[in-house]
């Protein structure tokens, strides 16, 4: 009798750092795909879904959140050691998140306002993306991430191929879906031309400018866009600065652009 080959499923782990949990919840939000996910992989460590934890090492680790504490800075090293592939998900993990606004200020001033006994708070001066600490195999952008893109990334890693995640502008998504450009037709400031695609161009389809939730696209020309906003759309310098100080404020391109508008 032929010996039956038991194929073990790849082990998936989901890790949380400084974040709102929204991105890892995208995995639970998969609904239609969740059974297929559970069928294809062993969800070995995902506290948001189950307290049953299977020990590492893990084939694929999804890391959500940024590093904001000394403890997290150590913990991410351990996660890396236990992971064959490490994929960061969301703006916190890939760019430091909204909490990276502290990077432009003095975090001690915040803790003294927020906490009654700030001396108990051990926090770092800066909120930093995971890639500042360990080698990252792939970064999935977004605030929050697009759940279909998450399935695509998992699927690509399971099947040993490159994820179909385009790093081009949001404009291409607008044009493919037939959305009229809000900047050209209404004069609404929009970060779409410098922002990484992936959301499906949701905001412009509701007549809103892009907020840049997916961070900078490949080769973003933020300077040219800001100059146009200023000269043609009448956007004030302080508002240009604020536009780039969103969820991806500490990403290289957006940080440099906002800093160039600091007085």
């Amino acid at each position: 009798m032929a010996k039956k080959v038991v194929k073990t499923k790849p082990k998936l782990a989901v890790w949380k750092f400084a974040s709102c949990d929204g991105c890892q919840l995208s995995l639970l939000d998969c609904e239609d795909e969740l059974l297929a996910v559970a069928d294809a992989i062993e969800i070995a460590n995902f506290l948001e879904a189950s307290r049953a934890v299977v020990k590492g090492p893990y084939d694929l680790s999804l890391v959500e959140g940024s590093v904001t504490t000394p403890h997290d800075a150590e913990r991410i090293q351990q996660v890396r050691r236990e992971s064959r592939y490490l994929v960061t998900i969301g703006a916190c993990a890939t760019a430091g998140g909204i909490q990276a606004l502290r990077n432009f200020a003095d975090v001690k001033q915040y803790t003294s306002i927020v906490y009654p006994t700030p001396q108990y708070i051990q926090t770092l001066k800066k909120s930093t993306p995971i890639t500042d600490h360990v080698f990252v195999d792939y970064e999935l952008r977004g605030c929050p991430i697009n759940k279909m893109q998450l399935v695509e990334v998992i699927s690509a890693f399971l099947n040993g191929r490159k994820p179909n995640i385009a790093p081009n502008s949001v404009c291409m998504e607008c044009k493919r879906r037939g959305t009229v450009c809000v900047m050209t037709a209404y004069g609404t400031p929009c970060l779409g031309p410098v922002t990484h695609a992936g959301c499906g161009a949701i905001c412009p389809s509701y007549d809103r400018g892009c907020y840049g939730c997916y961070g900078p696209k490949e080769t973003p020309n933020t300077t040219s866009l800001s100059e146009w906003w200023n000269a043609k759309l009448g956007v004030k310098n302080e508002d240009i600065l604020r536009a780039y100080r969103g969820f991806n404020a500490y990403s290289d391109a957006f940080r440099r652009q906002s800093e160039s508008y600091e007085k």
Binding site: I41, S155, A156, L158, N159, N164, S169, K217, N221
Partner: peptide
């Protein structure tokens, strides 16, 4: 220096025809 490389010109151009091919697989392969 001005170009945003956003691709809007090519998307609205009535003759620009270039396409990309994407292969996708499901989770089970």
């Amino acid at each position: 220096g001005r170009c945003l490389t956003c691709a809007n010109c090519t998307m609205v151009c009535p003759t620009c025809f270039c396409t990309n091919i994407e292969d996708v697989t499901d989770l089970g392969g």
